[in-house]
């Protein structure tokens, strides 16, 4: 009895290892039709001459690189790119440092201090407040504080990420045994040294998740720049696309070249870091 069960088990196991070609075919076709086709279209239109638009999806008769040059100049791409990059990078770095620090202090002291416990619930409950709810007063307040610029919005991003990141970090820190810290304290380290020398390096996987989520958020955000950044010199890439949408008029080739310019950096990052991005996003949600 025992034996027969084992043998059928083995057989089934073998069958399992065979490639399911039907499902593969369906998934490949769907990926081509629905995910890759729109991207292909974007690329093709961006490369075409306006006269070549009769059959939109055909490969360009000759490639018109000037589309990119014109879109580059028209939307003032380098400036907008620098703004976006500044916001994104500074946000990621400071978010990782400040938010993990706060989350660490809160998590380690929650059990013995009412204040820290209160702070924990304060930040977590703030997750329920959507941005739209505080948008109107925030716009007034931010401009009163002269924060309606690249630097100001970066600070706001760092602060606004706090609820989510406290939640993420805190879950991770709970799993780190306090023995490590105590050992470091015995060796004469103070709290800051304990954090930066012991805890901070251990939290690397969570840093990766937080970095990826913050990066995606700030790079693709549209609403906050829309209401805060009115000075054209301060605008981000996403906002610039919206602002210039009307000026592209029916010059679709220029418009799509401009879209592609915005999408390219993120596509390049994705190609190189996809594994890490996917695992980072997963652990951010599932943790």
């Amino acid at each position: 009895m025992e034996l027969t069960k084992k043998s059928t088990h083995l057989k089934l196991g073998k069958a399992k290892h065979q490639v399911n070609w039907t499902v593969t075919a369906i998934l490949v076709v769907l990926a081509i039709c629905f995910i890759l086709a729109p991207i292909y279209m974007t690329v093709v239109i961006a490369l075409k001459d306006p006269s070549d638009m009769v059959n939109v999806l055909s490969w360009p008769k000759h490639i018109r690189w000037e589309n990119f040059a014109e879109a580059w100049k028209m939307t003032d791409f380098p400036l907008k790119f620098r703004n976006t990059l500044f916001i994104t990078v500074v946000n990621v770095i400071f978010t990782i440092i400040t938010n993990s620090l706060a989350a660490y202090a809160i998590t380690r002291n929650r059990k013995r201090s009412k204040l820290f416990n209160l702070l924990y619930y304060y930040f977590i409950s703030a997750m329920f407040i959507p941005f739209n709810v505080l948008m109107l007063p925030l716009v007034k307040q931010a401009s009163a504080f002269h924060m309606d610029n690249v630097l100001g919005i970066t600070v706001l991003y760092i602060i606004f990420g706090l609820p989510m990141n406290t939640f993420l970090y805190s879950g991770f820190i709970k799993g780190i045994p306090t023995a490590l810290e105590e050992a470091a304290i015995i060796d004469g380290a103070n709290s800051w040294q304990v954090f930066f020398k012991v805890i901070f390096p251990i939290m690397k996987p969570m840093h990766a998740t937080v970095a990826i989520l913050s990066f995606m958020w700030t790079w693709n955000d549209f609403l906050m720049p829309l209401v805060l950044l009115s000075d054209p010199n301060q605008q981000t890439l996403q906002l610039a696309q919206y602002v210039f949408q009307g000026q592209f008029s029916t010059q679709y080739n220029l418009a799509f070249a401009s879209y592609l310019l915005v999408l390219l950096p993120i596509l390049i990052i994705y190609v190189f870091f996809q594994k890490w991005i996917i695992s980072g996003v997963t652990s951010g949600a599932v943790k």
Partner: peptide, 22 residues
Amino acid sequence: KIKFQNTLKSIYFLPYMLGTLI
């Protein structure tokens, strides 16, 4: 059990990376 599992996974995850506005 499919072929190109990782490639397909990356392709299907791609839209998450792109800005909603664009």
